[in-house]
Amino acid sequence: MVKHHLPDALLMAYAAGNLPEAFSLVIAAQASLCDEARVRLEAFDTLGGAVLDQAEPVAMAAGSLEATLALIAASQAAQIPAPVQHDCAVLPAPVQDYVGGGLDKIVWRSAGMGVKQAILSASDEATVRLLYIPSGVTIPDHTHGGMELTLVLQGAFEDGEDHFARGDVEIADESLKHTPMAVGPEDCICLAATDARLKFSGLLPRLAQPFLQI
């Protein structure tokens, strides 16, 4: 059972198509694991449809319908690619699409202390990565210039008094200093999106930051 859900504002921004790709991936992955999120997303899609229904129309150019029919005729032959087989029990389908397969296809880079990461997508706006944290390891204390979304895919982590398991998502921002620690029998795999570089509080992690690229 998912206990830590995504807030409405993020779901609505995703439904509206206004989130950076990195965050969209976390939302899509979480909704793949959580029916509650799926329901709320579809409700926001419906609201989008209602807004579109009530929107002020802007006249199409002359001959637009004919041009569209020509476009359809021209692309008639275009095939919709066959859906990719998703058969990894840990990675949700949208994440598998970025990795190019299951867990065995992830190209991990070591980040020290047994922690590994794999960047899936990075832009000026935001970055999304997979994190591998061995059980018992704590990610150094850091605060955020912007927002960080962390979704648990395997194992669990604890941050202060909160426990996050598969499907749970933690939202951290400037105000939150957090030290997530992987707990439980399994090593923890997370999908994390950040919209600004993290600021580590200690000196050594700060030196490590360029290597971590986070």
Partner: peptide
Amino acid sequence: EKAYFGDMSHSEIAT
């Protein structure tokens, strides 16, 4: 409308 049509970020969206 702005939340859907504009380029409103998630932090600007009124829940």
